[in-house]
């Protein structure tokens, strides 16, 4: 299983979304979410949203391993 995290405003869209999925890439997770969580999937399609796997920024086609942690990151606003 893959664990998934949503940060910032993405968390508001993900209140009822699953936190574990079976998927082979982050792009596939987004695809799976379009069925039951279309608003969230649309937010994830925004070009500014970055994805990380095991706390490293990667591309959407990064292969996932069982136990990977995938996080969806909207533009950061710290400082």
């Amino acid at each position: 299983m893959i664990s998934i995290l949503f940060f910032g405003r993405l968390g508001d869209f993900a209140k009822n979304a699953p936190r574990t999925v079976k998927a082979s890439t982050p792009a596939q997770i987004r695809e799976l979410l379009t069925i039951k969580h279309p608003a969230l999937a649309k937010e994830l399609s925004q070009p500014q949203v970055l994805v990380s796997v095991n706390q490293m920024i990667v591309g959407w086609e990064q292969p996932l391993m069982d136990g990977s942690e995938v996080a969806f990151l909207p533009p950061v606003t710290g400082g």
Binding site: G8, T77, G78, G79
Partner: peptide
Amino acid sequence: LMDFLKIKATFWKQVSQDGEHRWVEN
């Protein structure tokens, strides 16, 4: 350090204004 902290580090601000919560845009 501040310039890159602002655009790279994974922090997100949410403000409360008149009882409403809103995520800050970059």
